[in-house]
């Protein structure tokens, strides 16, 4: 490559790297008169973990499929890694990773065979064994995919999604059916990928998962975004009142206050036994449910 071409490539690459990972403006998808997506704007920054929440049928899946380039949009501007997914070629595809959720394919191939096969499609793939180890399936390397349990099958799906070293990874309800440890191991894996600079778009129904992983989230209901923010601040959660409960002289007492600090000081001064004290703020799940409920 000549010096001129290589500096042009460098310039292009650094410009691309400055852009947001995903920019969506005015996205609409209409099916025969009905708006599955009715005007969505959203921005996902590079290297962040972004979670999309919302009831089934609210337009979440449609939006993600449009971002993946698997569905045509009716209107709106979409830029994913700087390109329009509806028109992007295989070079763009190589920068994206999709972790499928419910596929039954390649049942007769071994884990290693399948991972290596898919790796072959990508110009900068990881080594198959490295990825298999990353998802914790090394001991199943030569087992046919047919023989794996549901959870192990999912790990293969993750392996296939990341083997191409994508800059952007789409995860759709990735831990459904996982037991609690497997979930936590999976979360660690995602955090490792994010730490490496991978941008991650995660749809999930588990609010604790969203809370554990997401840097930012958005709630989609009835084809629109009804709330956006961080897990701590979504829907005004941080400003919501705290509910303080304790037992005083054998009776259970509860008070709702914006800031429990003074109440606690008062209780301490009164000599109340604080081992029964609980302070709860609305959980992310509570906040989410009230956001969804408000749209009905």
């Amino acid at each position: 490559m000549t010096a001129a071409r290589s500096s042009l490539t460098w310039w292009k690459q650094s410009t691309i790297r400055c852009m947001e990972a995903i920019e969506v403006t005015g996205l609409r998808k209409t099916y025969g008169g009905r708006d599955a997506v009715a005007g969505i704007d959203l921005v996902v920054a590079r290297g962040e973990i972004f979670s999309l929440l919302g009831p089934n049928g609210a337009g979440k899946t449609t939006t993600v499929e449009i971002l993946e380039g698997h569905r045509r949009r009716t209107a709106g501007d979409v830029r994913v890694l700087g390109e329009d997914p509806g028109r992007a070629g295989s070079a763009w595809r190589a920068r994206i990773g999709i972790v499928l959720q419910d596929a039954d394919d390649a049942a007769d191939l071994t884990v290693h065979e399948m991972v290596r096969h898919i790796a072959g499609f990508y110009p900068e793939a990881r080594k198959a064994d490295e990825v298999i180890e990353l998802v914790g399936l090394s001991e199943k390397r030569n087992s046919k995919i047919r023989t794996l349990s549901g959870g192990q099958r999912r790990r293969v799906d993750v392996a296939l999604g990341i083997v191409g070293r994508p800059e952007l990874l789409f995860l759709d309800e990735p831990t459904t059916g996982f037991d609690p440890e497997a979930r936590r191991q999976f979360w660690d894996l995602i955090r490792t990928l994010a730490a490496d600079g991978t941008t991650i778009v995660l749809t999930t129904h588990y609010l604790d998962e969203a809370e554990a992983l997401a840097d930012r989230l958005a709630v989609v209901a009835e084809g629109r975004i009804v709330a956006e923010g961080t897990p701590a601040t979504l829907g005004g959660r941080a400003a919501a009142e705290a509910r303080v409960s304790w037992t005083e002289n054998g009776t259970a007492r509860t008070e709702q206050v914006p800031d429990p600090t003074d109440l606690i000081r008062r209780l301490l001064a009164d000599g109340v036994d604080l081992t029964t004290l609980t302070i709860t703020r609305p959980t992310l799940e509570d906040t989410y449910l009230s956001l969804i409920g408000a749209t009905r």
Binding site: A242, D259, P260, T261, L268, L274
Partner: peptide
């Protein structure tokens, strides 16, 4: 209880304004 009291007292003693407790 005693521990909580001690902790809050310590924060007060270093002049730190405790604005939220959970």
């Amino acid at each position: 209880t005693a521990g909580l009291a001690e902790i809050l007292a310590w924060f007060a003693s270093v002049g730190a304004d405790v604005t939220a407790v959970n």
